[in-house]
């Protein structure tokens, strides 16, 4: 992911939001989708993506479907019911965070 502390800790929220919007996705697809949406600005660290997906799966936030695609097995991830609720909560929390940060930082940015 883009080398900034601001983006740290947001990987799972990004993944969950994408899965909420797209139904089910596989690992490579997630990395490409993020690149596409952010026009290459944000690049997910692939080494961190799969551990995050597995952690969410173990927590019951995601469930998997495995299919044979193009001579290999592919693991698709999708949100569980618990995951859908959790995504809504996280997005609400993120909105609050952005609003508060704007209120705190915007006056200072205007003076620069």
């Amino acid at each position: 992911m883009k080398n900034s502390q601001l983006y740290k800790g947001s990987l799972t929220t990004i993944v969950m939001t994408l899965l909420g919007e797209n139904g089910r996705m596989y690992g490579y697809e997630i990395t490409q989708k993020v690149k596409e949406i952010t026009k290459g600005e944000l690049k997910i660290t692939e080494g961190a993506l799969y551990p995050a997906l597995h952690k969410l799966e173990a927590e019951g936030v995601l469930e998997v479907e495995i299919e044979n695609v193009d001579n290999r097995l592919r693991k698709y991830y999708k949100l569980t019911e618990k995951g859908t609720t959790e995504t809504v909560n996280r997005l609400a929390e993120l909105e609050d965070f952005i609003r508060n940060m704007q209120a705190l930082v915007q006056p200072k940015l205007d003076t620069i």
Binding site: Y28, Y50, D70
Partner: peptide
């Protein structure tokens, strides 16, 4: 291995 294989294969394609 399954997951890495699919990632690398898709990228290589």
């Amino acid at each position: 291995r399954l997951e890495l294989l699919d990632h690398l294969a898709t990228e290589l394609e």
